[in-house]
Design a binder for these strands. Structure first.
Length: 923
RNA sequence: GGGUGCUUAGCUCAGCGGUAGAGCACUUCCUUCACACGGAAGGGGCCACAGGUUCGAUCCCUGUAGCACCCACCA
């Protein structure tokens, strides 16, 4: 006997362990069609958030769905070393102990990061398991931790080195001194994508540069005066009449006294500012290009940690960059070379990781040449070999690839794949798979390895094939590449999706995946971005297990130093989670995610939705409880040959089931998880529970044993099918219930996971039965309505009269069902209806009367209101049908439909007016 | 500057060229033997605005406004 209500905690953990230890998650190499999903490997920077839980729910639903449909499923999972992000996490931990990574040294520090990785990786995998992820944990698991791959484990590293070497040999990787985005705090280059520019309030200054000859001067505008010490020229537009005469002359750089040529270049916008631009190729991307065009050598005036270097006058040397700005402004003002200082909105490039202002810095870096790779990446999407869902993300993908720059892949960090390049003393570079190979290439000359590591996305880009065993000719490459679908967020279309397409195509000739499903970004209930400083983040585990208010508050404010943040968080937590969070269970959380997964861009996570779907789980639980109470140990007609009598209700629910199965199949094919969840929800609650179970109760009281048997068979089989139908979304509860229901429905097997997914059988759609139930519902609802209008308490039964019989195939069964469902004492045919103030309703050409005297005025008012409504409708239909162009041009069925509606309404109106007249007569 | 998405019930969102939908919230009644995490009945919408196409527009087209987001070098 099941508990009276559903308690997720009691079942979830046990089932997961049984599934995993039984090996149900593994792919089986039968000759079945392959279905593969690559998990976007979570960063080992901490724990999973709602976005991960959402994504993983969708992936798991797809995997479970396809597994049940007989596919050879392989959900490849792993974790990402996440270079910069992870290094920062560990550096912060060291900071708390008052240490820096330099205190440890590179080797010890990297060891330390590995330790952290083990911890964070284990947490992540535990979280995924709690959510029910049926991932192939042992696949690509070189560390034997049942955690999938790690992007820095030996096997994955081998692929990284191989790719690097080959790209170098193909001249697609090169090294050179280039202007790159530099994070002066981290002391590393970052790629364009890792820089976020936000508009901020700043200032713009105008500075006077005296001409060397005569008394004239030029005025330039700048938002970064400290860079003037690296100026190499002043530029004007070639067509600018104001300055034509001085092009080719020279100006003197204030404070430093250096002589600068005045050059002409199209880049200058004569309409902006004074039309004169200082050119600082060492610290500005545009100026770098201008400098290149004019053969001007860039001058770098900053050290790698953002202080002025020896290229500047002695008094400025060693100053921090913003301190230098203040000092320079000060001196310019003193020398009256500062023309103006104005507030100005400007875009400030900041490092995505540290938030510090990024400095364009001239350094030696490694790059991947992107043009040919990108061209192919564009092509395969254009040809439809990779498809985006929703489709509009294709535009975003293309836009980026069409304007792509070479990819700076070297990072001056310690945590990551060290670049497989060695240098001899002359600086000659030898790229090789290992030191021995490098020495061979250098013919024995002493070598030093490049200390830099690769951008973390470099290894991520290889995951579609490296995780399957590349560079070996692994059979799984044949089977699981391309994978079926990638489920990921739009924020990494550039970082990851596009790069996977390019790299996988280049090295395997295949696309990495056929479909890309871009999932919504999870926000809080008000649509605010979830962030720690707002306190509106949610831990998926807290929704599964529940958490009390105090613990939640404590958890939300941990690690926050600023008092104002603390206060804000407390008020948020108090107003939104004043009573903490109840334990909804993994199934309810998953169902919520699925229900909210439409194609919209954001998902506002609303706790009340989660509660609603928890209630749904309870509903399913109790429906099963009812079915078990009425079927266990009883004759359920298990044997197909045993005779049964199936009522219109039995045939109806089976018919509906076919429709729902088809609907769910379509929803999965379209990646419309909301539609799949919605179809299941409505079927189980609105149809099976609200109507079928109630009708079944009556049938079970039928004396005919064949009716009873047919009812039990239908109850059990439909429920069993519904459990399978829902399993991909709510795996735990369906497994628990299926264990009991499955055998009653004649199913054998250890787990629902490996059962066949329900397939719609259109031949079992029974439109006659559907019509019968539609009529039954209409009459029942009308009768209940009358009860409610008559203020009849549910306990009080009443007699219902009808003028005409409902148009159904089984009148006796239908009327007795109406009697039961509308709580009537009887349901008799009487035409004409007695002269009374009893409430009357019109259904088609029939009238029903609840035999219960009500207040005359109340009844008149009720019917009058209905008359008004019907008259309004009739007016609309008449206008439409009087419009000759509608009647002529609209499709015939539409016109016929409108005519029918008009006729129906007119008939109803006559009956209502008739009733009104009678009431008037009695007055 | 270029691009994308959104605007529908109090809230969060589906939908669709042919009488406006769901969940939650709300009102009334009810502890009836699966379920109060429940049952029954109900209230609530100029589908952002303005034009156009159409017999017919919430839906298609064009603008406008507002709200998000992405990309881009204006000092």
């Amino acid at each position: 006997m099941l508990d009276k209500s559903f308690n997720p905690a009691a079942i979830e953990q046990a089932w997961y362990q049984r599934w995993e230890s039984a090996g149900y998650f593994r792919h089986d190499d039968a000759a079945r069609p392959a279905y593969c999903i690559q998990l976007p490997p979570p960063n080992v920077t901490g724990t999973l958030h709602m976005g991960h839980a959402f994504q993983q729910t969708l992936m798991d639903a797809l995997i479970r769905y396809h597994r049940m449909r007989g596919f050879n499923t392989n959900w490849v999972v792993g974790t990402d070393h996440a270079g910069i992000a992870t290094q920062i996490v560990v550096e912060r931990q060291l900071e708390e102990q008052g240490k820096t990574r330099h205190d440890l040294g590179r080797e010890k520090f990297v060891e330390r990061v590995w330790q952290w990785k083990q911890q964070s990786g284990a947490t992540i995998m535990r979280q995924m398991r709690r959510l029910g992820a049926s991932a192939n944990w042992t696949y690509a698991d070189t560390e034997g931790q049942k955690a999938g791959y790690f992007t820095m484990d030996a096997h994955m590293s081998r692929a990284v080195v191989e790719v690097f070497v080959r790209l170098f040999e193909q001249n697609l990787i090169y090294r050179g001194k280039r202007l790159v985005n530099w994070d002066p705090v981290l002391g590393t280059a970052v790629s364009d994508l890792e820089v976020d520019s936000e508009e901020e309030d700043g200032k713009i200054w105008e500075i006077r540069y005296p001409l060397e000859e005569g008394r004239g001067s030029l005025v330039v505008a700048t938002t970064r005066p400290e860079t003037m010490l690296g100026d190499v020229a002043i530029a004007v537009h070639p067509d600018d009449e104001r300055y034509r005469a001085i092009v080719g002359k020279r100006a003197k750089l204030p404070l430093a006294g250096k002589s600068l040529p005045v050059i002409a270049d199209d880049y200058v916008d004569p309409a902006f500012g004074t039309g004169c631009v200082k050119i600082t190729p060492g610290h500005d991307f545009n100026d770098y290009q201008v400098g290149k065009r004019h053969g001007l050598e860039p001058v770098s005036i900053l050290t790698l940690d953002g202080h002025l270097n020896d290229e500047v006058p002695v008094r400025f040397r060693g100053l921090e960059r913003f301190e230098a700005r203040r000092r320079i402004i000060e001196e310019l003002r003193a020398q009256q070379l500062l023309v103006s200082e104005k507030p100005y909105r400007l875009r400030v490039p900041r490092s995505g990781r540290t938030g510090v202002i990024v400095e364009p810095m001239l350094t030696d870096q490694w790059f991947v040449k992107m043009d040919s790779l990108a061209r192919d990446g564009i092509e395969v999407v254009r040809r439809g070999e990779v498809k985006f869902y929703p489709e509009h993300w294709t535009a975003t993908y293309h836009q980026w690839l069409e304007n792509i720059q070479d990819w700076c892949i070297s990072r001056q960090l310690w945590w990551g794949h060290q670049i497989p390049a060695w240098y001899d003393e002359q600086g000659n570079v030898f790229v090789a798979r290992n030191e021995a190979e490098a020495l061979q290439k250098s013919k024995g000359k002493a070598l030093k390895r490049d200390p830099d590591v690769l951008d973390t996305w470099f290894s991520s880009a290889l995951v579609p094939f490296s995780s399957l065993g590349w560079p070996d000719k692994a059979p799984d490459l044949q089977t699981f590449l391309p994978s079926s679908v990638l489920v990921t967020g739009f924020d990494i279309i550039f970082f990851w999706v596009a790069r996977m397409v390019m790299m996988t195509r280049h090295f395997t000739g295949e696309v990495p995946f056929r479909h890309v499903y871009i999932n919504a970004i999870v926000r809080d209930a008000e649509g605010e971005k979830m962030s720690k400083s707002k306190g509106n983040t949610l831990d998926p585990l807290d929704l599964i297990d529940g958490i009390d208010f105090d613990s939640l508050l404590k958890k939300s404010s941990v690690g926050l130093l600023r008092a104002e943040h603390r206060q804000k968080i407390e008020s948020y937590v108090r107003s939104h989670f004043g009573n903490g969070i109840p334990a909804f269970g993994a199934d309810a959380l998953r169902f919520t995610f699925a229900s909210l997964a439409s194609f919209s861009r954001t998902l506002n996570f609303d706790l009340s939705r989660c509660e609603g779907y928890r209630n749904f789980c309870n509903k399913l639980w109790n429906a099963t409880r009812f079915v078990l109470m009425n079927t266990e140990g009883k004759d359920c007609g298990l044997e197909e040959k045993e005779p049964v009598k199936l009522s219109f209700a039995d045939r109806w629910i089976v018919s509906l089931l076919q429709r729902v199965e088809a609907e769910v199949e379509q929803a999965f094919a379209d990646y419309r998880f909301d539609n799949a969840a919605g179809a299941i929800y409505r079927f189980v609650w609105d149809e099976y529970c609200d109507w079928y179970l109630e009708l079944a109760k009556l049938q079970l009281q039928n004396e005919d044993i064949l009716v009873q048997r047919g009812t039990r068979r239908t109850l059990v089989r439909v429920l069993e099918t519904a459990l399978r139908l829902a399993h991909p979304i709510i795996p735990f509860i369906t497994e628990e219930l299926w264990q009991k229901v499955g055998p009653l429905a004649g199913k054998s097997g250890d787990t629902i996971m490996r059962q066949r997914y329900p397939k719609s059988q259109p031949e079992r759609i029974d439109e006659a039965a559907e019509r019968d139930v539609a009529v039954l519902k209409e009459w029942t609802v009308s009768a209940r309505n009358l009860r409610s209008e008559a203020k009849l308490p549910p306990s009080e039964k009443a007699l219902l009269l009808r003028t005409t019989d409902p148009a159904v195939s089984d009148l006796a069964a239908t009327t007795s069902a109406i009697i039961a469902l509308a709580r009537l004492s009887g349901f008799e045919k009487r035409d004409p209806l007695p002269d009374s103030t009893s409430p009357v309703a019109v259904i088609g050409n029939a009238r029903i009367m609840l035999h219960k005297e009500v207040d005359h005025a109340v009844e008149v008012a009720r019917i009058s209101k209905e008359v008004t409504r019907i008259e309004g409708e009739i007016g609309k239909f008449r206008t439409k049908l009087a419009n000759s162009s509608f009647v002529e041009r609209a499709p015939a069925p539409v016109v016929a439909q409108e005519r029918q509606r008009l006729a129906d309404h007119e008939q109803t109106l006559i009956k209502l007016q008739d009733q009104l007249k009678k009431l008037g007569a009695r007055k």
